[in-house]
């Protein structure tokens, strides 16, 4: 686990300029005017709040067998974008809408996922 200063913060940061453009201009302007190189990496605070959440009582994928119930949350980052992620390090029944959370990077064998814990 590592904090937001980790270079892996890029995974969270990349969406931000894209969404700003979407809000500022009609969608075709984005499609017409911008190349992928117009986007830049931007460091985010890693803070957010829970917009909504659910508890899975059924495993749709074999890797979740025996891990139910587990939380999936919609997290609104302080800078704007909304992510689908998990609130971890917290019993599922204690997750609430409006709860402040902080990113935690979960390292797996060949990939890293931004998840969230209570702030």
């Amino acid at each position: 686990m590592s904090e937001t200063s980790d270079s892996r913060g890029r995974a969270v940061a990349k969406v931000k300029p894209f969404l700003e453009e979407l809000e500022a201009k009609p969608f075709w302007a984005n499609l017409c005017e911008h190349k992928l190189t117009d986007y830049e990496w931007k460091q985010l605070s890693g803070r957010g709040i829970v917009y909504s959440f659910v508890n899975y009582h059924r495993a749709w994928h074999p890797s979740y067998e025996g891990k139910t119930p587990y939380n999936v949350s919609l997290v609104d980052l302080d800078e704007g974008p909304r992510l689908i992620s998990n609130v971890i390090e917290c019993p599922t029944e204690q997750v609430k809408i409006g709860m402040p959370v902080q990113v935690v990077f979960e390292d797996n064998e060949d990939y890293t996922l931004p998840k969230f814990r209570p702030a």
Binding site: Y56, W60, H61, Y64, Y70, V72, L83, I84, S85, N86, Y111, L113, K115
Partner: peptide
């Protein structure tokens, strides 16, 4: 954007 966090369906 969904399945790595266990979001399906």
């Amino acid at each position: 954007w969904e399945e790595p966090w266990g979001h399906f369906s």
